[in-house]
């Protein structure tokens, strides 16, 4: 091979390697900068106290609490529905049927819909249509549910995370060997009994991965809750589903763009961002590890 050729080749391979390096470097820089900026303010107290002095001082406990509550309600809605959809796609649908393909297309579309659209939908559907309907029917037109609250925000977030659950669970169900299904059926179990006793227990790790990924996604997304329930500041924790709530991501956004004194609260902002970043990072890392193990097991 000619010398010039091998120089071009070396340059080209070097370029691809450099691109990969750039991405990894960006990840490391981002993590490092946020951690360096935040670790000075970060403490146990920061996690467990309320903000005070117009959010200039204090901790972020209500934002953590609100985020946790949000992802909890969200998971309660998204995980069962996502799991059932995955069961349909793997166990009931014929691979080539029009219906199954349409559902798959819908799931993929759902995964790419911009998150702000979910916020609009939450407003138009949950708050105005469902909430408004509830108020008219049950509360005689009194305003209770037709306004932003944690329930509507969680349900909006559940729609956003539904595809995450479906994809993970589907992948896991496909790792349950056909031989086990056959064994169960050969023992006289019906299809549903086989799914309930063999397939679902066999895909527990996938359901867990899906839940973790959904929780991570739900904890980090802000756009869907901008106008479906997140609040700038609340003196008390939410106690009912019709309460508004504080949220880590929203807190970062507000503090960084709307607060009266951005510079003075910068350490708090960094520390809050660090908490959110490390939270989602840890969750995703757990999911990656569980999935890698699962894949290795199949091989």
């Amino acid at each position: 091979m000619s010398r010039r050729n091998s120089i071009t080749g070396g340059f080209f391979i070097g370029l691809t390697a450099f691109s990969a390096f750039l991405i990894i470097a960006a990840i490391i820089i981002l993590l490092t900068v946020i951690i360096i900026g935040g670790k000075g303010t970060f403490s146990w107290e920061f996690l467990t106290t309320f903000p005070y002095d117009g959010m200039m001082k204090g901790g972020i406990f209500p934002a953590i609490y609100g985020t946790a509550l949000l992802v909890l309600i969200m998971s309660v809605a998204a995980v069962p529905f996502g799991t059932i959809t995955a069961i349909y796609l793997t166990e009931y649908a014929h691979e080539k049927s029009k219906l199954a393909q349409t559902i798959r297309f819908a799931v993929r579309t759902l995964a790419t819909v911009p998150s702000i659209i979910f916020g609009l939908f939450g407003l138009g559907f949950f708050i105005k249509f469902v909430g408004g309907g509830m108020d008219t029917v049950f509360f005689g037109g009194q305003l209770k549910w037709a306004q932003p609250n944690i329930l509507w925000a969680s349900l909006t977030m559940a729609l956003l995370t539904l595809p995450v659950v479906i994809v993970s669970v589907e992948e896991a169900i496909r790792t349950v060997p056909r031989e086990l299904r056959e064994a169960s059926l050969a023992l006289g179990a019906t299809k549903w009994e086989t799914i309930r006793r063999i397939v679902i227990p066999g895909s527990r790790s996938g359901i867990m991965t899906g839940t973790i990924l959904a929780v991570s996604r739900g904890a980090g997304e802000v756009a869907p809750i901008l106008f479906t329930g997140a609040a700038y500041y609340l003196a008390t924790l939410p106690t009912s589903l019709s309460d508004q709530f504080m949220n880590l991501g929203y807190h970062i956004y507000i503090m960084a763009t709307q607060s009266s004194n951005v510079d003075q609260t910068l350490p708090i902002q960094f520390a809050t961002t660090m908490v959110l970043l490390l939270l989602t990072f840890t969750l995703n890392l757990t999911a990656v590890i569980i999935r890698a193990r699962l894949r290795r097991k199949v091989k």
Binding site: A20, I23, I24, A26, I27, L30, V33, I34, G37, L213, S216, R217, A219, G220, E221, V222, A223, G249, Y250, I252, Y253, A256, T257, L266, Q269, F270, T273, L276, L277, T280, F281, L283, N284, L285, V288, A292
Partner: peptide, 24 residues
């Protein structure tokens, strides 16, 4: 190593990336 790392980047909340862009 690269593939999971990029999977992790996909999991960075956009508000965190936005904050990083805004401040740094």
């Amino acid at each position: 190593l690269i593939k999971p790392a990029i999977e992790l980047l996909a999991g960075f909340p956009s508000v965190v990336i936005g904050f990083f862009a805004l401040m740094v």
